[in-house]
């Protein structure tokens, strides 16, 4: 009974939050409801007994949305409405309808075919966290490592984009060139 109540409550809350995220024209509303929706989703993990994933959902998305807030602060006056450019409305409606149909089709396909089987049965006595670890480091090891490499690539790219004078390499320059750069720096400070 509690599970049903919790499910419908959080389903309603999540959908409402994301609806506001999409439809509102104020950056602060959109960000706040996005954060709230992401956190409410964790309730479904808790209901399904996947405690670890629920907690990770909370931790990851609070951090991720917090970074979005920072960008929101930089680009908008968050207390005022943003004037949006609405392009061709038919394209938007059409694409979102196709996307919705495809998501429903993908997730309902295994139910119809009744071919769902658990390849890796539950390990007796192992907790929720241990089970996630076992699957992650056996069956899904390669996707896991590839995701790690992707994050590393993104991090290096971010550093290169944000860093100054990244095209210069002090190890490849001789003493005079380095001295010239130093002089340039000192000139700016002195003047």
């Amino acid at each position: 009974m509690f599970e049903a109540v919790a499910f419908y409550l959080f389903a309603f809350l999540t959908i409402t939050m994301f609806y506001i995220t999409v439809t509102t024209s104020q950056a602060l509303y959109a960000l706040s409801t996005l954060a709230a929706g992401m956190i409410f989703i964790s309730a479904f993990f808790f209901i399904l007994g996947a405690d670890f994933l629920g907690a990770v959902q909370i931790i990851v998305y609070t951090g991720a949305v917090m970074a979005l807030y920072a960008f929101g602060m930089m680009f908008f006056d968050t207390t005022r409405e943003v004037k949006e450019k609405n392009g061709n409305k038919y394209i938007v409606v059409g694409l979102s309808a196709i996307a919705a149909v495809m998501v429903v089709a993908i997730f309902s396909a295994p139910i119809i075919s009744t071919n769902m089987q658990a390849f890796y049965p539950m390990v007796e006595g192992a907790g929720n966290t241990q089970q996630v670890g076992m699957v992650l480091f056996t069956k899904y090891l390669i996707p896991f490592e590839v995701a790690a490499i992707m994050l590393l690539v993104a991090m290096v790219a971010g550093i290169v984009l944000a860093g100054k004078k990244m095209d210069l390499s002090l190890t490849l320059m001789n003493a005079e060139e380095i001295q010239a750069i130093e002089d340039e720096k000192n000139k700016k400070v002195l003047s």
């Binding site: 405690d51 670890f52 629920g54 907690a55 909370i58 931790i59 609070t62």
Partner: peptide, 13 residues
């Protein structure tokens, strides 16, 4: 099962 993660996560919110 995940007490410490839960506590830190919720405190972060």
């Amino acid at each position: 099962d995940i007490g410490i993660l839960y506590v830190l996560g919720i405190m972060a919110i």
